[in-house]
Design a protein around this nucleic acid. Structure first.
Lengths: 349, 349
DNA sequence: ATCGTTACCGGGAACGATTGCGTAAATAAA
DNA sequence: TTTATTTACGCAATCGTTCCCGGTAACGAT
């Protein structure tokens, strides 16, 4: 069952005017007399008229809605980003339609097809951990769909992108570990081909090298489901513990991996930070309350969502095809807490 | 700029048929010859035809999208619920359009107006903590908009609702505190008029009464922003600590309040569970890793989202006005952990 | 030869809105 | 008074789709 909304036609009939006149009166056209305008406007106001957005969409060939694809909503980083996206979209009269890939490539494609068939005006996406084939996205982009990437971006596609300085973030976090006396620093990261993985591990490796420490590839682990499956993280940690050169600290490169590693270490009775230092990317506001409080790399997720949306709207509302694209690189924040105060130094209370 | 999609008209022109024939062929109508069907279908397939959903919406007077209003996406309970909503909506070919009220009544109304003007087919909502006036929702409902409430429901409006057994949940949690030797149990809750507040506090009070403990209203605090503002929680805790009868345990009635209280207690150096027991509603998966691990009441958020969506779709797709409404009451889960092992009993390792 | 059926297909009106164009009346200019 | 201009409005096309009406063949039955 549906409730019938008032249409322009109803107003026209009620007032003995044509629909064109009503339409023009509502849009305050110069060719309508003030009296008629007043009449129409008052009637519309009184009867709570709202233009049918679907009819408008059909006419204007735009839906005023943007699609968002993330791997998971219930993840602090992504939900904070969506928060930012929603706030900007909202202020500009756009809807936000959300889909989850759940880290599955197939599902990402289906979502993509679905969203585009629902005629969204633009897309904001952080690709799934499985996504190695970008042909669908590329095709979409070439057809003219405005796309903005954030977090896990796609180098092959030229468009606006929003990320943090992944290299520097990981570099600084690794240096922080080194400064705190850790000698054998491992990394637990996502799939190797992901942009964030490449950049973050590059920072990690550079930091080690710059501090005269050898990079031991045995100490770099990849979780192909990005920590969605805890067992995967457990295996990674187990392998690290059995490595010839057992690490004394771990750098994790995403939210789920950080809390996942912490969870595993705790369950194994490995003390943090004494036996194992831990620093990782995380946007959860509860890491501070953990035991020990976690040293984290926090991304400006909300702001990233805002920027991505502004860039997308710019793309959507541009009259001519945009050729100049920018990659916004934001600074992350290294919040040092208990999980990395170890070895040599002890922070004074 | 837009990319032009293939329309039924294009197919008709290319194949020398009328649009009606093409339309019918695509919908496998009996009055189209097998040959023509094959021709059309193959052409459509080859050129990747997709019916324009906006045109369909206009014709069918439905948008195949549902609106969701929650106070905040970046909240574990709500993001998990949205997860459930999205999964069911997705499987039924519906979009999910999300808005946040940020616990503000005004913003909730604006979102409501916006969503309905965008012609959603139905609405799933958990009202904001400020919402006392339901006339807008009521009017919407009377106009025929399918609505399903979850979590913070509205008694005055007769429609489907999805909640947990708030009374029992709070009752059991309180009894748990009593059993663990706590004598003076306080409650930190949301605004008094919220459904969840009333039900949960009723359970709390009943549990105290049933165990021969007096209900001291000084020990019941209300946070009118639902814990969104930490200061508010801090004030509540301060008042509790200065109460004539100082409490030795706190029951918190929502996610933000639980972690908020914990944060405040920790910052004040009040040890949990020794000086103060703590149990609260929470859906965060990190509470287990806190120090001490938190005893929580966990709601089946994902499932709640699923059920709410199924009920809504049922409402939307019903041929005649639905008169029989149900309130699904789900069981919550009391997960006992360190934050409530106190006084008398000590759990053996 | 005429009629009724069946099988196929097209015309055109919706759905709700915008907008280019035409035009009547009123006013101004010649 | 005649002509030009302005004012104020309506007609109809358009967006992409569906679906109610037709309509026209071909064919068998009378």
């Amino acid at each position: 069952m549906r409730f019938e909304a008032l249409t322009i036609k109803d107003i026209a009939k009620a007032l003995g005017l044509s629909t064109s006149t009503v339409s023009r009166a509502l849009r305050d056209s110069y060719e309508i007399s003030p009296e008629t305008k007043k009449l129409v406007l008052e009637y519309a106001e009184k009867n709570n008229y709202h233009p049918n957005p679907i009819a408008l969409s059909l006419k204007e060939r735009r839906s005023r809605s943007i699609g968002v694809i993330v791997c998971e909503i219930a993840n602090s980083f992504f939900s904070q980003t969506i928060n930012g996206i929603e706030s900007i979209a909202y202020n500009n009269g756009y809807n936000v339609i959300i889909s989850q890939s759940r880290e599955s490539f197939d599902r990402e494609i289906i979502n993509l097809q679905y969203l585009t068939s629902r005629s969204i005006d633009g897309l904001i996406i952080s690709v799934s951990t499985e996504t190695r084939d970008f042909s669908f996205l590329k095709e979409l982009h070439e057809k003219g769909m405005p796309i903005v990437f954030f977090d896990r971006i796609v180098d092959e596609i030229e468009t606006h992108k929003v990320i943090v300085d992944n290299y520097k973030s990981a570099y600084d976090a690794t240096v922080h570990l080194v400064k705190n006396g850790y000698q054998h620093i491992a990394a637990v990261s996502n799939a190797a081909y992901l942009s964030i993985t490449k950049e973050r591990l590059a920072g990690y490796r550079a930091a080690l090298a710059d501090n005269g420490m050898a990079v031991n590839e045995d100490l770099v682990k990849h979780c192909h489901h990005g920590g969605m499956i805890l067992v995967e993280v457990e295996e990674a940690v187990n392998e690290l513990l059995q490595a010839p050169e057992k690490p004394d600290a771990i750098l994790t490169t995403s939210d789920k991996l950080t809390t996942g590693c912490f969870r595993i270490l705790k369950s194994k009775g490995i003390t943090v930070p004494a036996e194992m230092g831990l620093v990782g990317f995380s946007n959860s506001d509860l890491t501070e309350l953990l035991d020990p409080p976690l040293t984290i790399i926090k991304q400006p997720a909300f702001e990233m969502g805002e920027i991505a949306t502004n860039l997308l709207l710019q793309l959507i509302e541009s009259k001519r095809p945009v050729k100049e694209f920018e990659t916004r690189v934001l600074a992350s924040e290294l919040i040092t807490r208990g999980s990395t105060v170890a070895k040599k130094t002890k922070t004074p209370a």
